[in-house]
Design a binder for these strands. Structure first.
Lengths: 141, 141
DNA sequence: TGTACCTGTAATAGATACGGATACAGAAGA
DNA sequence: TCTTCTGTATCCGTATCTATTACAGGTACA
């Protein structure tokens, strides 16, 4: 694995939890399906827990969704596991303030990138965990 | 500097070139305004050149825009310097095929993330280098 | 023609972020 | 009590990115 996969691992775990509600999935089972290690699954699941998306008791297997899958948007998950405080397109930090372009490039790029990121997140917000699980169910038929 | 700043460095360089058309900007001057080193500027400028966004002659200072700033979209720049062949939200690579969720999670996530990235890029396409330079000019007043 | 300057490119090093792996205290349940 | 699992911390290897250095080749100008 190369780049940030927390989001997809989180989605995979959530889909498993939703898909197998009767099971008490341990982090090891989830890790086995995701293709990673239990510790990482626990870390991701903890982030989802802190964000209020799943509920779990320490020591007992089987995290549960804190609310129906239809009410968990991909944006919720994205924000839970991707703690970027910065732009997805980072802006270089030290432009020269003695130059008109250097002084204002950051504001200009913020104004330009902001709507793009807003559009990205708006699309994520439109889709829910339930959409993903029904997609999977449809494919599995 | 921490994360990928090629896009913002490229935008900064292009804005400088557009903002000071009479100057023959060397990579060192651009680096000085951007706050980085000349070699990196040359590398980024070379990517913009390969993408057909700027023209430059080896050995002679002063790259020029290959077409008017209004016809250079942020998406053009983004694609020129950010050679991602993958999703911005990468998908983990080895889900377990013996599990229904593992088998179909990649397709489900692709279907969910694709529109978000398309929306992101559509917004970038709507804005041009000219928009950024006029923003800077307005701020500088 | 010779010199100074610049570009384009490669190679290397340093910094940072992420996942992999291990460990362990604490909680739950048998 | 003993086992299992979670939650969390720590350390390591790796990948990616920028910084740095180096250098061959091209241009301009005296």
């Amino acid at each position: 694995m190369s780049r940030a996969t927390r989001f997809s691992v989180a989605m995979h775990a959530l889909a498993l939890i939703e898909h197998l509600p009767e099971h008490r999935l341990t982090s090891e089972m989830i890790a086995n399906s995701v293709g990673t290690n239990p510790s990482f699954v626990r870390r991701v699941l903890a982030m989802l827990g802190h964000a209020g998306l799943v509920q779990s008791a320490s020591g007992v297997a089987g995290a549960r969704l804190a609310r129906p899958a239809a009410k968990i948007s991909l944006l919720d998950v994205y924000r839970a596991v991707d703690m970027e405080d910065e732009h997805r397109l980072a802006v270089h930090a030290e432009p020269n303030p003695r130059c008109a372009v250097g002084r204002h490039i950051q504001g200009a790029l913020d104004a330009a990138i902001g709507p793009a990121e807003a559009a990205f997140e708006a699309q994520l917000k439109r889709r829910s965990l339930a959409d993903v699980t029904s997609f999977i169910a449809a494919q599995a038929k």
